[in-house]
């Protein structure tokens, strides 16, 4: 992996003539987790998709720049709420999908190491339908790591999991993605409080930066300051909706 750059996205987005979000500036610190917290419909997924260079249906006026001045969209890995595993391919094939799509030879040793790291070594030849939701999301994480990109964009990847599996996945992802520039889009204040090294709340009125807890991420689920932050974030979200 090359050194992870910081990112700045600044601008506004419109869908037809309706404003999706007014001019805003979001900074992602190099090699750190930024959590973008917000309710549905405020355009947080649009921000992520713009960085990824994906179709958004919105017209974006502004720019997305990396601190090293190099192009952004070919250095991102993307993980969504839907694990996006190909149902006809095995776990191993899904993990090495990127290389195959680019017509490259996948690094099989690396693939096997990542599968092992995600504790999936007993499921290599299984199809996604034979796995649980948590296992499937671990395959998706292995596939993301296999891409080895300095920038990782996570679009609510843990929101469909049950509470215990979600906490496990948060720990695993935090550890696995250390050193990369990560943008996590989420609607869960608890998740933002556990994982964010910087936390930004997005509402119709724009972005509000919030102080993250002092403990290093991933923070323990019962850490007092983390729970307080969670409460403060939730209050911020609710106030704004009122």
């Amino acid at each position: 992996m090359t050194r992870a750059p910081g990112l700045t996205i600044s601008g506004s987005a419109k869908i037809d003539d309706a404003t999706l979000f007014a001019p805003l500036t979001l900074n992602l610190d190099a090699g750190a987790w930024t959590c973008l917290l917000g309710g549905s419909g405020v355009g947080k997924t649009t921000v992520l998709r713009l960085i990824a260079g994906l179709e958004t249906g919105a017209k974006f006026l502004g720019q997305i720049t990396a601190s090293d001045g190099l192009p952004v969209s070919d250095r991102v890995a993307y993980m969504a709420q839907d694990d996006l595993l190909l149902p006809w391919a095995t776990v191993a094939q899904n993990v090495s999908l990127g290389a195959r799509l680019r017509g490259e030879k996948p690094d099989l040793d690396r693939r096997d190491r990542l599968i092992k790291r995600m504790r999936l070594q007993d499921h290599m030849t299984k199809k996604p339908s034979e796995l649980s939701g948590g296992q499937r999301q671990r395959v998706a994480l292995a596939r993301t790591l296999m891409e080895d990109r300095p920038i990782v964009l996570l679009d609510e990847p843990f929101s469909a999991l049950d509470a215990r599996t979600r906490a496990d996945m948060q720990d695993l992802a935090a550890e696995a993605l250390v050193g990369r520039t990560v943008l996590l889009v989420t609607h869960d204040p608890g998740e933002a409080a556990r994982l964010g090294q910087s936390i930004v709340v997005m509402t119709e009125h724009g972005l509000t930066p919030c102080d993250p807890p002092h403990a290093p991420a991933p923070r323990s689920v019962d850490d007092l300051e983390t729970l307080e932050t969670q409460g403060a974030l939730l209050r911020l979200l609710r106030e704004d909706a009122a």
Binding site: L54, E55, Y78, L84, G98, L101, R102
Partner: peptide, 12 residues
């Protein structure tokens, strides 16, 4: 979603 994923992987 599959097409989005493929796009971030620079698939032809």
């Amino acid at each position: 979603g599959f097409l989005d994923l493929a796009r971030t992987m620079q698939a032809s």
